[in-house]
Amino acid sequence: MKKLLIVLVVLLGGIISAFALSANSHEDNSVAGPFEDVVGAIKQGDVSGLSRYLDNNVEINIGGKANSYSKAQAEIILKDFFSKNQVKSFELVHQGGETSRFGIGNLATSGGNYRLSFFLQKKGGSMVLNELRFESK
Score class of each variant (00 low, 15 high):
residue 95 Q to I: 06
residue 92 L to P: 02
residue 133 R to M: 09
residue 106 N to Q: 12
residue 134 F to Y: 05
residue 95 Q to P: 02
residue 122 K to G: 10
residue 116 L to F: 03
residue 125 G to T: 11
residue 120 L to M: 03
residue 115 R to Q: 14
residue 115 R to V: 13
residue 99 T to L: 11
residue 109 T to D: 09
residue 104 I to D: 05
residue 104 I to W: 04
residue 128 V to T: 10
residue 109 T to I: 10
residue 122 K to C: 07
residue 93 V to T: 14
residue 110 S to Y: 05
residue 129 L to C: 12
residue 131 E to N: 13
residue 130 N to S: 12
residue 113 N to V: 03
residue 120 L to F: 05
residue 106 N to L: 12
residue 111 G to E: 02
residue 123 K to H: 13
residue 98 E to Y: 13
residue 98 E to R: 14
residue 91 E to P: 00
residue 121 Q to H: 11
residue 127 M to Y: 14
residue 98 E to L: 15
residue 95 Q to A: 12
residue 121 Q to C: 06
residue 120 L to R: 01
residue 120 L to N: 01
residue 94 H to C: 08
residue 130 N to G: 12
residue 123 K to S: 15
residue 133 R to W: 03
residue 124 G to V: 10
residue 114 Y to N: 08
residue 128 V to H: 03
residue 105 G to Y: 04
residue 99 T to I: 14
residue 124 G to K: 10
residue 125 G to A: 13
residue 127 M to N: 09
residue 133 R to H: 10
residue 99 T to S: 13
residue 129 L to R: 07
residue 94 H to I: 05
residue 112 G to N: 07
residue 112 G to T: 03
residue 112 G to F: 06
residue 117 S to H: 13
residue 110 S to K: 14
residue 109 T to V: 07
residue 129 L to P: 07
residue 91 E to M: 06
residue 96 G to P: 11
residue 105 G to F: 02
residue 123 K to C: 05
residue 107 L to Q: 05
residue 119 F to R: 12
residue 93 V to E: 12
residue 134 F to Q: 02
residue 124 G to R: 06
residue 126 S to K: 15
residue 100 S to E: 14
residue 98 E to D: 14
residue 127 M to T: 08
residue 103 G to L: 00
residue 103 G to Q: 02
residue 111 G to V: 06
residue 128 V to W: 00
residue 126 S to D: 14
residue 93 V to R: 11
residue 98 E to N: 15
residue 129 L to Q: 04
residue 99 T to C: 01
residue 135 E to S: 10
residue 108 A to F: 09
residue 128 V to S: 06
residue 114 Y to W: 10
residue 129 L to V: 08
residue 107 L to I: 11
residue 102 F to H: 13
residue 121 Q to P: 02
residue 134 F to S: 01
residue 115 R to P: 01
residue 109 T to G: 08
residue 134 F to V: 04
